[in-house]
Design a protein around this nucleic acid. Sequence first.
DNA 1: CTGTTAGCGCGTTCAG
DNA 2: CTGAACGCGCTAACAG
Lengths: 343, 343
Amino acid sequence: MTAIEDPGPLRPVTLADIAREAGTSASTASRALSGRGYVSDSVRDRLLAVADRLGYVPNASAQTLKQRTSRVVGVVVSALDNQFYAGLAAGVEQVLREANYQMVLLGDNSDAAEELAGVRTFVAMRTPGVIMTPVGAEASRLLLSHGAAVVEVDRRLSSAPCDAVVIDNERGGREATMHLIGLGHRRIALLGVATEWTTDAGRLKGYRTALRNARIPFDKRLVVRIPVRAPDTEARIEALLDTAAPTAVFAANNALAEQAWRVLRRRGLRIPGDVSLVGFDDVPWMEMVEPQITVVDQPTIELGRSAARLLLRRLHGGPSLAPEVDVLQPRLLVRGSTGAPPG
Amino acid sequence: MTAIEDPGPLRPVTLADIAREAGTSASTASRALSGRGYVSDSVRDRLLAVADRLGYVPNASAQTLKQRTSRVVGVVVSALDNQFYAGLAAGVEQVLREANYQMVLLGDNSDAAEELAGVRTFVAMRTPGVIMTPVGAEASRLLLSHGAAVVEVDRRLSSAPCDAVVIDNERGGREATMHLIGLGHRRIALLGVATEWTTDAGRLKGYRTALRNARIPFDKRLVVRIPVRAPDTEARIEALLDTAAPTAVFAANNALAEQAWRVLRRRGLRIPGDVSLVGFDDVPWMEMVEPQITVVDQPTIELGRSAARLLLRRLHGGPSLAPEVDVLQPRLLVRGSTGAPPG
DNA sequence: CTGTTAGCGCGTTCAG
DNA sequence: CTGAACGCGCTAACAG
């Protein structure tokens, strides 16, 4: 707009600069630019013009320091490169943006130490709230003890009561297993994660419930729980196939489903001819492969949106509000990877 | 550790608190905890113990305000849910973490306005540097004018000279096209993005070079450039197939490759029997589908790592350093989706 | 409606 | 080696 270029990176322009330029005090400039407090229209216009001309950008640190809180909310998820978590973050971001909050995203690689370190920088930033897929208990404890709101999403972990949004994992696990049983399977393997996460616990519970209802005895050799990011994941899946001879595999998350699928393919096993496969959490590849993968779909984006709404509610309502836990419903999508057992 | 719980969220503990508790001044506490300046060992130990006991977390805003810079570097990518950008961010994060910097990640949905808004909050945070996959020119201009370092990654856009790391897109485009020509194709479609991005420009240029070298006339009807996130992307691909009757499709990024693949499948066209397909940027589904997709692979993680290294170099070296542009090499992976043209 | 004063929490002189 | 004083940029009281 202006012909004169800004003075360059020499010194950032401050409120005092624009006040001086406009012939007012800094307080007035503050009121004009923040929109709070009385300022005459003429003065305000002049101030706004100067600020615009000088390319003024308020110093967020000074604001946060003064107001003792910021409009940044932290989000920490387990794996930035997993489409499930990416979708979650996208959902969070949508509603946060509408409420004029800024999302800051962090990945912790499912590592409690990394999670704690990340959360620590959030408390350092005086973030009013954090949304997280919890991996360790320390993190939310730290946050809470510093007065930050926390909402857990996807899984619950906090010992202290806090807002959360999850899905009905037990139902998802039950439906997947019942579907397999209905097809005639009796040797159904469960591939889960070796954690205390409520996601896996719920899916496992649903699996056991379905078996019990069908009077199928539980065989612990069919249940394999693999540590997150274990380097020998595929070997463990191979071992399962070798030792337990399942006719169907229920993989309790999208990453395990992918690994299982790869192992099955490498072995030349036909799906569902030799082994049926059902996944949990629908991701694009599942309907691109042949046959397409039967899967328990979850409302990923909505999970994120709900979490953000819960956080906003608490930021607005304060700590006296009773904790709210939203439970969303998964949905079984029957596709081509499940069929009758062989023989 | 301690039996006494911390006083709770009442008032955040400050340097003054821990100083008082330890019977020193705040300055000494500052020196002890930051590790800068002289402090006797005994005093330091006492201070550290108190800080630990009280759960002290330094106020990042105060630090940033005082030091006029922070250890947070901003990263803004086009699409958080695209595995390419996710990998990029992962690479950046790796080297930043080692250097004790904190990454703050933002997605801009390939929208210049969103990008600018995000970047504005980075300058508000007094972020010393930003790594970005640029979409509009304003963003880096703003950053630079405020004295922040910027490194462009994946594509270049800034009018002002700045550090960047890209791949040799022209070579990638050329090799993909030559591969197709070698197979006997003469009607090769190019699916690109309707932008000025150097990525697409380079790939297109490589495509044209390959055609020229092979004495194949350029047919503009074979080149379709689709706006990012266009709602009618698939229809445009359909139209290409209808009007230009290509025997091969070169999709210039992973998203377009996916869309093209879906259209081809829906139409019941055989790959490569009826149409060959080559993608750009290898992502997991490409080797899961049948046949697997021939693709120009790029060193995604390394792209991110290099960008971060470039940024650190500049943060350390200052603005007097000559801008450095790293060019990494792509690599053609020949798989099953390419074969001789029909007939 | 506007200016003055004061202080958020920290790091950095500069004396002692 | 340590403490006192000051100011980073901004905003909330409080006069006027």
